[in-house]
Design a protein around this nucleic acid. Structure first.
Ligand SMILES: [Zn+2]
Length: 594
DNA sequence: CGCATTTGACCGGCGC
DNA sequence: GCGCCGGTCAAATGCG
């Protein structure tokens, strides 16, 4: 089964390579910020956990692990090889085999002096110079690698930030919905039906429903009984890299509340694969997934069902850079199909959520034809089961996006209001963009977690399918003066060997932070290392100013890296060009983040 | 041996 | 009606 080991959407494995002094020493590529040593950003009143894992502090070995990327290597073998070598050598042998392809220079300089002098001494000198050059080259490459890492880090931070932003928007949206309109019957249903007991226990305020509860109220609570192991599974793909060991201390907060819900989807099991054989209509509310061709079934069904159908039909696609075949979103996926898409050389893979038996969630994974370093993951449906925090991150985000979209599509008033609201909400946060466009068969929200190479590009033109990195992936092989996009791609590539992009942790953190304020939701969580981690991050990120802190972190990192790399034209891109694109049937509009 | 993936078959929608 | 196309199924295959 697929565990989604590809991109991990959180920040942790990368660690923070904050502002290294000019020494380009691979052996100490990153500052050691263990989570306990969370970084305090000046002027910000709470610590930000940068998710450094302890072992990552280990100088070379971890680096090697990170750098060795051969397996998943789709695009640029040569580079990788070089980097690998570099990562190995603390001080490279003078006779370096590392072929940097920069010999031209050395040859020239040498030729001048060597003409009439004593051959031997010159030879030795020559050799020495050569060696020095080689070393310099190696160092140069190290610098490049460092730069890439920094950029990768920045990218991840940006991604995280974007994710958090999404959460913020989601929460704001929910609040808005709560305030502006009485809860829809479905919401009421879900709240009463599911959260009632929770509310009793927690006695907390009524909370905007969790995305998981968006499904049919009756069965949504199905819980996988055996999911004590869920966390390993979800994280197993990259245990070394992904799990945030740092925050163990927080685990206690969550461990108590393993969910109590009895798994009652036995029926679902029988119904699984109901597509044809076993009637799925017997229990429409059971919400085992229904083939998504639900375009017209709305009429006969009650409103709830209609919205459900819409929900299922709504899609949220996430674009992120990853060389890995699939992003790690914390869920378990089983591949059930693969097709060659029409205009895309890369096949499209179809996955189904297997965390619960009847879970209707499916996703499509496909590479962006124009930039194959971009992985487009399209989610469809809502989980009908509790999710581990890691999965919560992505799921809640996507669901939020779907909600946004659907709220727009359901009532015209909302439709007008929500996008604007979204735009407004995101504006102060960052350079994000929301776009509503036509041309999608399904209402689709696109979260673009890729990054624009242009640092000046704080406002992007509202083109829907803009390719953030027009550069072609092939260019990645040109190591020294790699344009930023490629650098990013490579950095991410390196880091994503096991984990790739990391979004989940922070997203989940936001989620948990949210939950922290609403304790009744906690019980839905699974205790686990993941939970632990997320709890920790949640605690850390519970502060409402987290985004500000993150922004500060980003800026600080940017500043530092800028100082180090400013000669590099491709230097840090400061803007997180997260864009939200919603495709509706008939309109196209965009909301530049700022 | 059980499970996940692979992969060609199949199905429904849609346009011509 | 036919063919294309996106999406899904399920037998075959591979893997641990
Ligand atoms: Zn699910």
């Amino acid at each position: 089964m697929e565990k989604g080991w590809g991109l991990i959407l959180d920040s942790e494995p990368v660690g923070f390579y904050v502002n290294k002094p000019a020494a380009f020493n691979l052996s100490t590529p990153r500052l050691n910020h263990h989570n306990k040593g969370s970084i305090m950003f000046p002027g910000i009143e709470f610590p930000v956990n940068l998710n450094r894992r302890e072992d990552q502090a280990a100088p070379l070995s971890s680096d090697e692990n990170r750098m060795v990327v051969d397996e998943v290597d789709f695009f640029k073998p040569t580079n990788i090889i070089v980097k690998k070598e570099n990562s190995h050598g603390g001080a490279p042998p003078t006779d370096v085999d590392v072929n940097t392809g920069l010999h031209l220079l050395t040859a020239n300089t040498r030729s001048d002096q060597s003409t009439m002098e004593d051959r031997i001494s010159l030879d030795t000198e020559d050799k020495r110079a050569k060696n020095e050059l080689a070393e310099l080259q190696v160092e140069l490459e190290r610098m490049n690698a460092e730069n890439q890492r920094l950029r990768g880090t920045l990218t991840q931070v940006s991604n995280n930030y974007s994710a958090l932003q999404m959460h913020l928007v989601t929460l704001m949206q929910k609040q808005q919905q709560q305030i502006l309109r009485t809860p829809s019957p479905r919401e009421q249903e879900s709240l009463e039906g599911k959260s009632e007991e929770k509310k009793h226990q927690a006695g907390g305020p009524v909370v905007p429903r969790q995305f998981m509860e968006l499904g049919p109220s009756g069965t949504t609570e199905t819980d996988e009984p055996s999911h004590s192991s869920s966390e390993e599974r979800t994280q197993s793909g990259s245990p070394q890299n992904n799990i945030e060991v740092a925050s163990k201390e927080f685990s206690l907060s969550k461990n108590g509340n393993r969910n109590e819900i009895a798994p009652h989807h036995d029926q679902d099991k029988t119904n699984f694969r109901d597509g044809k054989g076993i009637g799925r209509e017997e229990s429409p509310e059971l919400e085992s997934w229904v083939p998504n061709k639900a375009p017209k079934l709305n009429t006969p069904k009650p409103i709830d069902q209609a919205t459900e159908a819409t929900m299922r039909k709504a899609r949220v696609s996430v674009r992120a850079r990853s060389e890995a075949p699939m992003i790690t979103d914390g869920c378990q996926w089983r591949k059930y199909g693969q097709k060659m898409a029409k205009g895309n050389p890369c096949p499209r893979a179809y996955y189904r959520c297997t965390m619960a038996v009847g879970c209707p969630v499916r996703k499509q994974v496909q590479r962006f034809s124009e930039d194959q370093t971009i992985l487009i993951t399209t989610y469809e449906g809502n989980h009908n089961h509790p999710l581990p925090p890691a999965a919560m991150a992505m799921a809640s985000t996507t669901t939020a996006a779907a909600n946004m979209l659907l709220s727009g599509s359901m009532s015209s008033a909302d439709g007008l209001m929500n996008p604007n609201f979204l735009a407004r909400a995101m504006l102060p946060c960052s350079s994000s963009m929301a776009t509503i466009s036509a041309s999608a068969p399904f209402p689709t929200v696109t979260l673009d977690l890729t990054h624009s190479p242009n640092p000046l590009q704080f406002q992007r033109p509202p083109a829907q399918f803009q390719v953030p990195f027009p550069g072609q992936p092939q260019n990645l092989s040109s190591l020294p003066n790699m344009p930023l996009p490629q650098v990013f791609g490579e950095a991410l590539y390196n880091q994503s060997k096991f984990s790739g992009l990391q979004l989940s942790q922070n997203m989940e953190s936001a989620q948990l932070a949210h939950q922290a304020s609403h304790p009744q939701l906690h019980q839905a969580q699974h205790p686990s290392l993941v939970d632990t981690v997320s709890a920790a991050t949640a605690a850390i990120t519970a502060d409402p100013n987290f985004t500000a802190a993150l922004a500060a972190a980003i800026t600080s990192i940017i500043g530092s890296s800028h100082s180090n790399n400013n000669n590099n034209t491709t230097s840090t891109n400061t803007n997180t060009n997260t864009s939200i694109t919603t495709s509706n049937s008939n309109k196209t509009s965009s909301f530049p983040g700022n």
